[in-house]
Computed example of a mutant assay.
Amino acid sequence: MSVRPAGGGDKTPSSIHELGELRQRPGTGSSRTGVVAMADSTWFTDGLGDLYGERPEGHLPLADAGSIDEVRDAMVRGGLVDVTVTPLHDVLELDRAHGVAPGHEVRLQHLLVGRRG
């Protein structure tokens, strides 16, 4: 996701925390609204292993989340409100019927939606 903060330039948030900082930038008056919507799952509950090599502290903090609630909680900490989590059972059934990319496991995905507070 690329956004153009006040003052120009491009910035790509690397975390929910940075996303929260962007929502507080100058020029984002209270009349503006925003929605974050994403599909996610608990992809690496057994850890990332060597998939991404050595991981600096704080990078990919949710990659090995044990519960989708951890992702929801991060969205709330980032300043989003009314965060909802909807299981995508139809996607799960499609993945079971048609398969997933090589090396991947079938996982229940979720639609997470929150709005700027």
Rank of each mutant, 00 (worst) to 15 (best):
P26E: 09
S15R: 12
E57G: 09
P61E: 06
E70P: 00
E105H: 12
G117V: 05
L80S: 00
G8H: 12
R55G: 04
L48G: 08
I68V: 08
P87G: 06
T86Y: 03
V91D: 08
D64W: 02
L19K: 00
G47T: 06
P26G: 12
A97I: 06
E57L: 10
D82G: 14
L108R: 09
H17W: 07
E57T: 15
R72F: 02
G79N: 08
E93M: 11
D69S: 13
A63E: 03
T45F: 00
E18G: 12
G8P: 06
A6D: 10
M75Q: 03
A74R: 01
D82A: 14
R96A: 07
I16T: 03
T45Y: 01
I68T: 05
V106E: 02
G47I: 02
R25P: 01
S31D: 13
L22D: 03
E21N: 12
M38H: 08
E93L: 13
Q109K: 13
G29W: 04
L60C: 06
V3R: 14
V36G: 01
G34E: 09
A97G: 10
R116A: 05
E57S: 10
P102R: 15
L108P: 02
E105Y: 05
P5C: 04
G78R: 03
A65F: 00
R115Q: 04
V35S: 08
M38C: 11
A37V: 04
A101M: 07
